[in-house]
């Protein structure tokens, strides 16, 4: 499970001033649950996830994964998290099998186990035919599947996917979405981010809306619909933004 408490992450800009990319963010996610971080580009989703995967150290606040602190017990956190970052590159000259094996070994997964995981995941994600081709010859959809499989080669209890379906065709996207559901059904704790409302609508058990580094609203879609009396997630999102801006003008049916 994931626990984030008043998390703050600031970046020092070129001119020396600091900029808050994540501002007092609090939320959690438990096993058997898919939580979605929803927000426009630059909202702070990636930064939040990077703190959770120990890449960034927070300036203040707390973040825990499976009860381990991301700063104090970073090693433990890395073992328990599978992190797919937004714009991941892959080693072009390796094959998907070599690529996954490499990371399996870095996670100290036993060899036999690595093979089994590759077999399992390539079945669900439909990767059999390109498992031994060089990655440089794969399409972007294939690469994304390889990336996802790589990120959870060690079968971690917590999975964090940053915009996992961005730029993918509909078939691949569906494949990945159903894979994520499958993970949840196996009892994993899944946190994923997106700026596509439809995807959040379809996949998330709970939604955490983030805007300009702050949590705008969180809860189930039903609860949000109840509160705003709006059906569409697009409208709901705009509603909350306007509310936060202090203007209660509801702009409906504009998109």
């Amino acid at each position: 499970m994931i626990k984030v408490q008043s998390l703050v992450k600031e970046f020092i800009q070129k001119d020396g001033t600091s900029f808050r990319a994540v501002d007092e963010v609090t939320f959690d996610a438990s096993h058997n649950e898919i939580v979605c971080l929803l927000g426009v580009n630059g909202a702070g989703k990636t930064t939040t996830m990077r703190v959770l995967s120990t890449i960034f150290e927070p300036n203040s606040g707390k973040a825990e994964v499976e009860g381990y602190d991301v700063v104090a017990e970073a090693d433990k956190v890395r073992e328990n998290v599978g992190f797919l970052s937004g714009d991941t590159g892959l080693y072009q000259r390796l094959t998907p099998r070599e690529f996954m094996t490499y990371f399996g070994r870095l996670y100290a997964v036993p060899e036999g186990m690595i093979e089994r995981r590759i077999r399992e995941m390539s079945e669900i994600l439909d990767m059999d035919e390109f498992l031994d081709k060089k990655i440089e010859f794969l399409s972007s959809g294939m690469k994304q599947k390889v990336s996802i499989a790589r990120s959870i080669i060690h079968n971690p209890p917590v999975m964090i996917f940053d915009e996992p379906t961005i730029g993918l065709d509909i078939l691949t996207a569906r494949n990945i979405v159903s894979f994520i559901r499958e993970c949840r059904n196996q009892g994993k704790c899944v946190l994923f981010s997106t700026h596509i409302m439809r995807e959040a609508e379809r996949l998330a058990d709970r939604i955490v809306m983030i805007h300009r580094g702050k949590v705008l609203k969180q809860g189930t879609l039903e609860a949000m619909r109840e509160e705003t009396k709006l059906q569409d997630l697009d409208d709901i999102f705009i509603y909350y933004i306007n509310q936060a801006n202090g203007e209660l003008k509801v702009v409906a049916n504009e998109f």
């Binding site: 890449i55 890395r78 998290v81 992190f83 970052s85 991941t88 892959l90 990371f103 870095l106």
Partner: peptide, 17 residues
């Protein structure tokens, strides 16, 4: 090169010091 190809992050999050 790894930074440029954006593969470094994957290496950093994996359980290797």
């Amino acid at each position: 090169g790894e930074k440029e190809r954006q593969t470094l992050e994957t290496l950093l999050v994996s359980s290797v010091s």
